[in-house]
Design a protein around this nucleic acid. Structure first.
Lengths: 227, 227
DNA sequence: GCAGTGACTTGATCTAAATCAAGTATGAGG
DNA sequence: CCTCATACTTGATTTAGATCAAGTCACTGC
């Protein structure tokens, strides 16, 4: 095969639906890079050199204001990050830290920026992926502004599984202290909130959380509010 | 002129940089609609029929969870809303309420969705506008998670003017109770927080806010934290 | 094996912001 | 002009979550 990168590109949601010619142009400029746990892929304030597409492993997007640091979102295989900064050529607003070893496809930002004006399929696909992520962020903002810590944790846990009925076992996408800032609370509060959820059939052993009944946990979210 | 809508299209940031042929295709399908204060342009949960491009007037995007309602963001002339829902054909996650009388260009979502796959310039421009808005949302999430109510209000006020030095007078983009939920606080808290800012040269008379010294207000944001 | 470090928990206390409860404008409609 | 509704303010009180302070536990490196 002409391009050894092609099989990796196909694993990335942003590129998977693209026609062959677009894929090949991307394969020409993409590079594969391994990263190890706890390292930073890039930091807030830096100029955007690449778009990062996760092939394997997991990372967190974190934003710092003042001395503090807050997790914006967790990302896993198939997801792409930093498309907005790269497209606009503006400094990153967030940093990315690996939460496991893994591999990412790196697409040079400058080349990508010129490709997008000529390749309608690619541009449209970017618009769609950005739209999808826009919705993820909106949901998070709505939750922070209108739900209590307990409700937010319950929603978060439910979002970590694709099942909707019965029981579920899931691994947290990062350390507890990262999950805490993702939810907009402190680690101590997460610890206590987790304990509250015990009454609703949630058990946690390290990174692994077991939910006895998804239905039961769901009742916590809309607390007898029927209108 | 063939298309009476063209001058309006040019006022919309999303379309302004597009080449003539793209503009004309858009002019063919766009419709102008007036709206009056306090009315809803669309509501959360509805199917996306249009993209709304504000030509004149102002609107708020609000999201409701449980019984509550929170302002996500304020929008003014030139800005477009609901592009994400329209592109993906998914139900709106938010509602839009007018905060003044005004006019909007409505682009049918279905037609727009097919245009975008053929028109590279349009698709690229959508990707760029979505990217810009992504950054606005990220900034908001970072602020909510890491700043106190006072800091968030100070930042918000500063963001409402393009000046960076001296004094400034500005009109709030909506009612105080809307500004409050935009900041993730209750109206009562906004009232008290405003009073606190009096010591930092902020005076408020109804919708109008006067900042005596932007520099002085800025010091409040990075409280003697230098590293 | 044992110090050292960093994640997590648990408890006691504090505080920022929410809630509850009156108020005072302000503006629309009869 | 008066009444009603709605925005906003102000005060008293409560509370969710933060902060401060010990702990325990698991893992690393010597």
């Amino acid at each position: 095969m002409a391009h050894p990168r092609l099989p990796y590109l196909r694993k990335v949601d942003l590129f998977a639906p693209l026609p062959e010619p677009s894929m090949e142009r991307l394969a020409d400029i993409a590079g594969l890079q391994g990263f190890s746990n706890h390292t930073y892929l890039f930091r807030e304030g830096e100029e955007p050199d690449f778009i990062y597409c996760l092939v394997e492993g997991a990372i967190v997007l974190v934003g710092g204001v003042n001395g503090q640091e807050a997790v914006i979102e967790f990302f896993g295989p198939g997801e792409s990050i930093l498309l907005p900064a790269a497209l606009l050529g503006l400094p990153y607003l967030v940093s990315a830290r690996a939460t496991s070893d893994g591999q990412a496809l790196l697409i040079p930002a400058g080349r990508f920026r010129s490709m997008i004006d000529e390749d309608a399929a690619l541009a449209a696909q970017c618009a769609r992926m950005l739209s999808a992520h826009w919705r993820v962020l909106i949901r998070q903002i709505k939750e922070i502004k209108t739900c209590s810590a307990t409700e937010r944790l319950a929603k978060f846990l439910l979002s970590q599984t694709d099942k909707t009925k019965g029981s579920a076992t899931l691994a947290l996408p990062g350390m507890k202290k990262e999950v805490a800032t993702r939810l907009g609370i402190k680690p101590e509060t997460l610890s206590r909130t987790m304990k509250k959820l015990t009454e609703f059939g949630v058990e946690s052993t390290g990174e692994v959380v077991h939910i006895a009944s998804l239905e039961r946990l769901t009742t916590l979210i809309n607390p007898t509010h029927l209108d």
